[in-house]
Design a protein around this nucleic acid. Sequence first.
DNA 1: GTCTATACAACGATAGAC
DNA 2: GTCTATCGTTGTATAGAC
Lengths: 218, 218
Amino acid sequence: MGNETGTGTRDLLIETARDLFLLQGYGATGVAEIVRVAGVRPGSLYYFFPTKEDLLIAVLEWYRDNIYEGLLQPVYERIDDPLERVFGILDGYRQMLLLTAYDQGCPIGNLALEVTNSHPRVRELLKENFVQWTDEVARNLTLAAGRLPAEIDIPGLSEYILSVMEGAIMLARTYRTIDPYDNAIAHLRDYVDRMVEDGTNWAKPSRFRHASDGEKTL
Amino acid sequence: MGNETGTGTRDLLIETARDLFLLQGYGATGVAEIVRVAGVRPGSLYYFFPTKEDLLIAVLEWYRDNIYEGLLQPVYERIDDPLERVFGILDGYRQMLLLTAYDQGCPIGNLALEVTNSHPRVRELLKENFVQWTDEVARNLTLAAGRLPAEIDIPGLSEYILSVMEGAIMLARTYRTIDPYDNAIAHLRDYVDRMVEDGTNWAKPSRFRHASDGEKTL
DNA sequence: GTCTATACAACGATAGAC
DNA sequence: GTCTATCGTTGTATAGAC
């Protein structure tokens, strides 16, 4: 096909590299393989991306710019409750693990551990992706703030949720079973439930506590 | 130097590879670099390890066989309380992040995400290392069982703690700041505190709850 | 913007003398 | 068990015609 700007080829290369990086990692994916799978010649790739790292940067920018379509929208279509939307996002990663037989985890998490000692711009984009994720979770938690304790540190809790998810994916992929992921999310749910039921929370060495029972069908 | 069994060279190669894999990853570390840093010739390396992957396996076996000396002993020397020993282990990773300026995370976690789609024996050893870690945490939690709710699922909680730690290391290394790690451990502490103070826990959809106050200076 | 052809270094691994 | 020398492949990246 080919259009006047060559955008089609550029996007094709980004999407091909994205998929291969996700499956095999950045270092294990060769430029030759990318152009072969994309059906493009090396000259075209290096026309758009002077180095392989520039292609990685474009992939990370793609993830950053497509979080809604790829991650949030499918969940938000099914779920309205903001707190359940957070757990819906987590369930999305669970489905990915099952569908790919643990071959694919979190794209950003994989790259984070592999290339974090790399070029500054890459780390910057990894951070941007993580921050975008936690900001979205925080937005949902804010919408659910009525059910959560007033003094809750929503950004901190959001970041904690990301930590749990990334670690749980790591274990599930290593064990080749969903159990560690389900276990981790169940504990996370238990933790949030305690906050909801409790009216207290926060991880700082706060030790103020008061009984306040009550059933909750979160 | 050189002894009759060549064990010295073998161990030297394992330790050199271990350090380089930790700093740069498995794929990014070349065999040529390993032998150069170790001051050994390629012929010697391939005498002991037919392939690079065999060397990786030896490194993972090293971690498995040295968890006490490298990880537990320094903590257990300072801390006696079993529950605090768990948080002491977590603090060890915190010190490593700070001392290496976020260049080094968890050796097993790094390799887990990088080579988990690799040879079965490698994944098996990654799992052995994780299980050994969670078993040790579970042992400590069992010793502290008097303070924890009776119905607690100790293996599940131990695995959850590992998930939190691995994810938190990932974020701290990406952000190049200790904040995400401290935030995650603080939330974990809060969660455990709630169990200790509460007398209830467990992440299954159990919703039985009963008040039981009491101060606790964990 | 895309093509063919290829440069040049690094890769894992091996051969064979000692 | 260790040495030197090197094989064959793949890696990223480039040159220059079209």
